[in-house]
Design a binder for these strands. Structure first.
Lengths: 150, 150
DNA sequence: TTTGTTGCAAAACGTTTGCAGCCTC
DNA sequence: GAGGCTGCAAACGTTTTGCAACAAA
């Protein structure tokens, strides 16, 4: 599941993306990219904002703006598991995201499955070019299933 | 894609669910169920609240509470396509929801695919019982793809 | 020099909560 | 009668906005 490229590659990809889109190179954007890539699991806008406070002066507005750009660049993906806030994870070029969510305790587990990926990749939509996808399975873990029966 | 049961069946299923969970039968809950099942596409909490105002006195709190119960009962499914609000659709016993979303214009299209469904149903997670799932494919429709290149 | 980007603070938005009173069971 | 459920309005937390100042190109 871990095939992370060296940070320099990520930074270069971001730089290329900014150039291509004619967006400006600002130190804030690179500071946020670096922070973002220091997380291994999910993170949200507030986490990035807070943890940058000690090292760099950035506003919330810029954090939100930059996370948007990083999503466009597909260097991160956003997930809306519940309605409380947007959560992100770095993804570089990863195209597929598979989750298992327990409706009882809300625990989120990532998984991967070659059969499923293959079935999805094979599908061809005319007039639509797929960039990435998310599959979310909802259900009940054993622990919650037991509790439900009581 | 339309295999909708008669409304009486839905109402009965709801009534059974309430009984099973020892939730009370209130007129508000049935009024909301009826309104919910009058929509063919997506709806949100505010839409239900507003359109009930003319016929019935219900509070927003009750609408939110009832939509939660209807989700538990799996008579509706909730979707978080963007971070603005929760959207619902009736679903009765439908287990799978497949969407195509254009990252340019945000248009959402539903589709179905037997191969993909089969690959997912076949998967067996020990210690986890799947109730339903959502597959969301992101990409670019032709129109937006063209605009992007300019 | 132009104008995209920033920080700041206020505002917006959907949703949740606390509480007194109501109505199922 | 007990307590789950209701309406109401205020509160909440995340995200967006407006604007003046700044700095990348």
């Amino acid at each position: 599941m871990k095939e992370e490229p060296p940070y320099e590659t990520v930074r270069q990809a971001f730089s290329d993306f900014l150039a291509e889109k004619k967006y400006r190179n600002t130190p804030e954007r690179y500071a946020i990219l670096e922070k973002v890539y220091s997380y291994d699991g999910f993170f949200d806008a507030e986490m990035i904002f807070e943890s940058l406070q000690n090292e760099y002066r950035v506003s919330r507005a810029t954090v939100y703006n930059t996370l948007e750009i990083l999503s466009e660049a597909r260097l991160i993906v956003s997930h809306l598991f519940d309605n409380t806030k947007v959560r992100y994870e770095k993804c570089f070029t990863k195209k597929s995201h598979h989750f298992l969510i327990c409706s009882g305790c809300g625990k989120i587990k990532e998984f991967s499955d070659k059969q499923i990926s293959a079935a999805i990749q094979v599908k061809n939509f005319k007039g639509f070019e797929i960039s990435h996808y998310t599959l979310t399975l909802y259900g009940w873990c054993n622990k919650c299933k037991r509790m439900m029966k009581k």
